[in-house]
Design a protein around this nucleic acid. Structure first.
Lengths: 195, 195
DNA sequence: ATCCCAATACGAAACGATGAGTTTTCTTTA
DNA sequence: TAAAGAAAACTCATCGTTTCGTATTGGGAT
């Protein structure tokens, strides 16, 4: 989500309001699902007008995605990996950690919102799904090129087979996103790519 | 979803109303998402009172689940399989066919509703997820017992790794639930269980 | 440098629309 | 008599939009 803060005639947008909105959203998300969260509640907690929120963001999903990204630590890049297998493993471990955090349910709920609205789907894909899938797909492709991985599986299916089970567990039985799953999943899943 | 049509004093429940509600729901689902579908619209189309719907079902998810199950062909049992691998393959193929049908989006949307409401989650689990997962888990377990499958993977993770990618594709990039996926997925996924 | 105007953003309130789930009322069915 | 039916009304909440008065800028004129 970007704001084009071009140097135009007129009152500039208030970073204070924006920050208040994102912080209020994060606070409300600690006790409210995405579906139950209302723009009215965010506006009230942030002490801003609803029009201000709608001026900056197209819908609730967009606000929540920005609020998530605004949390400290959410933009931490991964270290450089020694192999493509290692790179994928780090991506999967990072995903599991994220989904097993206080943000896990929120992300499940955002994925759900994406099923109901094309606008929300695009936002969720642009901000979370596609960066993840593209990074993994790249590692798969390079690993297949250099002989690290088997060649007889398309990278698209492989991405589904690496990421799908994590999201499925998140949505179907989230209580099983636990330490054991953390410790074991990535290695088991990577068998899909190995001879 | 059951109705206890016990022989009680008073007016019996009308199978005609129930059927009208389920048919109306199915018709509306052809052009409306679960999220956009309203109880008011169902009541209007079925020419029943809202109270009648709420008398039979706790919420919209429950009505939709029943409407799906009410469609002809939805309760078709699978034939007996020659091996546990074959049984799992048939379950996965059936799931892919279901999710690549006109009901696929509805099921994605129901799964989404389940993230927002414990009542809806229970309904979705009872009616779709758990029967599927239990059937596959049973075949895995038996296949591990008789040596058909490798033993070093817990059946719960294996179920996630077999079902998860299908649901993930349904929700993340449904346009790729296509013939090629139909033809190839189950065999690739079953490698997880093979030596 | 100062002032003024136009443009944009702000918060607050109001608006019309919609639908949830519940209650009420009268009729129907055993 | 009891339970279910349809229809209408009810209260409440929220959506996204509109309206309004105030605030804050940039740019031009003086």
């Amino acid at each position: 989500m970007e704001n084009t803060a071009a140097a135009k005639k007129g009152r500039p947008r208030s970073e204070k309001s924006r920050s208040a909105i994102l912080n209020a959203t994060n606070k409300l998300l600690l006790q409210t699902s995405v579906q139950e969260l209302s723009i009215e509640a965010i506006a009230k907690k942030a002490k801003v007008g609803k029009t201000t929120i709608y001026r900056w963001w197209p819908n609730k999903t967009a606000v929540v995605m920005d609020a998530l990204a605004h949390q400290p630590g959410m933009q931490t890049p991964l270290p450089t990996a020694s192999s493509h297998r290692e790179a994928i493993k780090m991506q999967l471990d990072k995903l599991i950690r994220l989904l097993d955090s206080k943000n896990g349910q929120t992300i499940a709920q955002l994925f759900s919102e994406a099923q109901a609205s094309d606008t929300s789907l695009k936002i969720f894909k642009d901000n979370l799904l596609e960066p993840l899938m593209d990074a993994i797909a790249y590692s798969i492709e390079e690993g297949q090129k250099n002989g690290e991985f088997r060649q007889d599986i398309e990278k698209e299916i492989a991405v589904d087979m690496l990421c799908g089970p994590i999201f499925f567990r998140l949505m179907a039985h989230p209580e099983d996103l636990n330490d054991e799953f953390h410790d074991t999943y990535a290695n088991k899943a990577l068998r899909v790519l190995e001879a």
